[in-house]
Amino acid sequence: MYAQASNERLTKWLMGAILVIAYAFLYMPIIHILFASLSSRPNFPYPPEFDYGSYIRLYTNTVYQDAFLNSLIIATCTSILSTVLGFLATVGVLRFGGRKALLYAAFFAGPLFVSEILLGISSMSLYYLVFELQGNMVTAIIANSVHCFSFCFLIMAALLYRYDWRMNEAAVVCGASPARAFYEVMLPLTWSGILGSLIVAFVLSLNGLDISFYLLGATPTMPSVAWGALRYGVKPELYALSSIINILVFAAITVLYFVARSDKKRPME
């Protein structure tokens, strides 16, 4: 009996250790960048020797700021556009898809399997060919939305699959117009999926290099500036910027976590 108890303890320790290793594997690069950005010696920041200089220089560097702003605009617009389109597609497939719903869904998820570089190049030439559109922010947003749409579709389809559409009917016979039925009943019951889709699309398009790169040309975005910086030697400002972005992304994930939890507290039948 004693042996068994110690066995259990051993298993617990082992599991804990594996967990720590797994997390370390995932987060070491991120932590490393954080250290590097905060250090006076960014190339080998151990032992740490704190210095906020890179953040101050970042604050005055307009190229990075422009890039950050552009990325933010692209990410925001893309997440909204692709979530709206994804939502409409989800509603269409789930409500009116009938027996072919799976087929429609498969084709909506299809663009997931196209590589981003291909999508970027092809969008660039297509938009130019058909619409004579030069690469700019708008085309970048559209091309990014094509890529993010499929993720948004999958995320919302997984959630709306369990939604009882007759809730809308119940609302409508109570005198709610379809629009009111949507935001009084459907939105509160499905918003965690919609928020999840917004966040995922935001993060994807914020960090996506390839698509924006081909469609924007000289306009800087975060990933393209970072990529360019690689060729001329990495500056610590870049570390600072990526750390800021990482922190933003973690904030978004934290929000998602709490949303999911508050949703569980009030299970829907």
């Binding site: 007759r166 119940a170 016979v173 009943v185 019951l189 009030r266 829907m268 039948e269």
Partner: peptide, 15 residues
């Protein structure tokens, strides 16, 4: 239409 309706599955708003 100004009607009321009661469903077999009740369909109360869970939130």
């Amino acid at each position: 239409r100004g009607i009321g309706m009661v469903f077999q599955e009740f369909l109360l708003f869970p939130h």
